[in-house]
Design a protein around this nucleic acid. Structure first.
Lengths: 141, 141
DNA sequence: TATATACTTGACTAAATTAGTCAGGTTTAT
DNA sequence: ATAAACCTGACTAATTTAGTCAAGTATATA
């Protein structure tokens, strides 16, 4: 089980954005340089974030991106959801009609993976962008 | 983020083994048939489980595998550890000397992934094979 | 002792996924 | 006008996964 870097980058970029988000929009170029993420890849990620209304774009010279909600209203769930980062534990769920393994009943561990998914999603549900920023400032002091 | 099927199969197979583990050892062939997992793949998995002393093999005719510990002493952590299923959240950890992104400091979200890892490992640490079997019996009633 | 059953090991491979790159746009402040 | 910055879709190399395949070794039982 591993997290993909798309999800990681999305969170990193948004923390960066939130930190530097005062008067002017923040350009992807700046985020790219500060966080060491390829500009092209950032554009893909921000396109998705924009479609889910997490950020807003400002076009033209001196343009960039702005948060579309308050930092405490953006949960990790929202971010991961936007970039298609999902917790996929059970393959059995693909064929929803059948049970798992092609058998009519649930597989022996079906319940377990459900619980695990919930456990992880709880974590993502509770953490907001604001939490991350606070945590960041505290550690700097 | 997703769980690999090697980890899933390992858990499924062990639950199956624990259920049918009375007097005789359980053959991989039986597990394969009951759980719909390829025999060859099961052999790979059980080889690892044996090396970590989670199961014991009984060779020869009528042979098979037996649990090497009590079901309540086998935690999910142990199983996942045996088959190399790990929770890998942060790539930054690879180059331990440096911080993340090749920079000397930790990346903005380093702490977050640490917390997530702990959160998930907690879950695996608490669940034992016995819990899974109980859960299974209860749902059947 | 023959032999079938079952474990054991290592090498190999096809498919899927990821982590980007690349090219060619469009929009708009200055 | 033009440069900065967003926007989009297609493409690709590397990695990982989920197995398969082949060639054994060990041993209970007839």
């Amino acid at each position: 089980m591993r997290l993909t870097s798309k999800g990681r980058y999305a969170v990193m970029a948004l923390v960066d954005l939130a930190k530097f988000n005062d008067i002017n929009p923040v350009s992807l170029r700046d985020i790219s340089l500060r966080q060491g993420i390829s500009l092209d890849y950032l554009e893909q990620i921000f396109s998705k974030l924009r479609k889910k209304a997490i950020v807003q774009s400002v076009r033209g010279n001196q343009g960039g991106y702005v948060l579309n909600k308050k930092a405490n209203e953006i949960k990790l769930t929202n971010i991961f959801d936007a970039v298609d980062e999902k917790v996929k534990t059970v393959q059995c769920k693909k064929e929803s009609k059948k049970g798992c393994n092609g058998k009519p009943t649930k597989c022996l561990t079906h319940n377990l993976w459900d619980e695990l998914e919930n456990h992880i999603n709880d974590f993502f549900e509770k953490k907001s962008l604001e939490d991350l920023i606070k945590d960041n400032i505290e550690r700097r002091i």
